[in-house]
């Protein structure tokens, strides 16, 4: 590991966007991924559950404007059962992975269903639970083929190109990988979920390094779900099982760790204002009660401002990061300082 130089990167809380919308409409329900379009609009993949509604790709922006929702639960073209990730290509076409249907669905820039591809299996060009997706520098799609323990690369129209990785805990091996991201310098970062580490690969898929061990200390992870990298090479890891986000510089020097500080979003505040009984009761609400538990999942369940299942991170104009939480149906906005 390289020697740390200069001032540490910090992350300061700025805002919360979201609202629990199990019945659909404005807000999210069990969101699992988000992506920022070239015009700054923010797309949140609201996976939902099998019982209630609230599923779809919800569209907002950094100022809490609400636009629309596309797609919904189902098996028809353009629908999903267990969506896992979304990503935009250079033409603002939206790609969505589904680990239950083992397919990648494409929407055009106007949100119209365009096509889908992918079949279940373990052979080349087949999936067993596609999870994270990201475009490489050539505009080809990297798909984390979770239960096949590999990363596959496809042309945007679904033609198989190559793959790397296999099951294991050695260099370049995976244990149920989840999120993938492509850094501005074209390196590929994979959240090697059950190995509690992040692995870095060259554009060609050649192993560069792996970082992280199992634990809750600095530089340790508990089932990291996703990773984002900014223009300076700073790395932000959604440390899902530890219910936090850790930041590192490009040489993996630890910078900071945040636990979340969510407040009432614009939509949430409007709801509270419209319900006098809840507003009155909430006026005495202590968001940080004294707890008798220390398991991070349980602590987050009892502490509303904290991240609960932070699952995905997106950079916004390279000055802010958006941290999506499945458990609280929102994303928190932090600014790099």
């Amino acid at each position: 590991m390289a020697t740390e130089t200069g001032a540490r990167l910090g992350l300061e809380y700025r805002d919360t966007n979201g609202f629990g919308a199990a019945q659909g409409g404005r807000g999210y329900y069990l969101p699992v991924d988000l992506a920022v379009r070239s015009d700054g609009r923010i797309y949140v993949l609201s996976r939902g559950d099998a019982i209630q509604g609230g599923n779809g790709i919800k569209i907002t922006d950094i100022d809490h404007n609400w636009f629309e929702e596309i797609s919904r639960r189902g098996t028809a073209p353009g629908q999903f059962i267990s969506a896992t990730a979304i990503a935009f290509d250079a033409s603002d076409r939206l790609f969505m992975a589904d680990e239950a249907l083992h397919r990648i669905t494409i929407f055009d820039a106007d949100h119209n269903y365009e096509s889908h591809w992918g079949t279940e299996g373990s052979g080349k060009g087949e999936f067993d639970g596609p999870s994270g997706i990201a475009f490489d520098r050539d505009g080809n799609l990297l798909v984390v083929d979770d239960k096949n323990q590999r990363i596959q690369r496809y042309t945007p129209d679904g033609k198989y190109l190559n793959s790397f990785g296999s099951a294991g805990d050695g260099n370049g091996e995976f244990s149920f990988p989840w999120g993938v991201t492509v850094a501005p310098n074209s390196d590929i970062y994979v959240a090697d979920w059950r190995n509690d580490r992040i692995q870095r690969f060259s554009h060609e898929g050649k192993f560069i390094d792996a970082f992280g061990t199992t634990g809750a200390g600095e530089g340790q992870f508990n089932r990291p779900a996703n990773v984002a990298v900014d223009a300076d090479g700073n790395i932000f890891v959604a440390d899902w099982g530890n219910q936090r986000v850790q930041a590192f510089d490009k040489d993996w020097n630890f910078q900071t760790s945040i636990r979340g500080a969510g407040e009432l979003s614009k939509w949430a505040a409007e709801y509270i204002d419209a319900n006098a009984d809840e507003k009155e009761a909430r006026s005495t609400f202590d968001p940080y009660p004294e707890l008798d538990v220390d398991d991070p999942h349980e602590v987050s369940a009892r502490t509303e401002p904290y991240f609960w299942d932070p699952v995905s991170i997106a950079l916004y104009d390279d000055t802010r990061i958006l941290i999506l939480e499945t458990g609280r149906h929102r994303f928190q906005v932090y600014e790099k300082v």
Binding site: F19, G20, W267, E290, L291, E298, A301, E304, R328, H329
Partner: peptide, 11 residues
């Protein structure tokens, strides 16, 4: 109601 951010588990 799960609004605004889901349920907060009790302590």
């Amino acid at each position: 109601t799960l609004r605004p951010y889901g349920y907060v588990a009790w302590q």
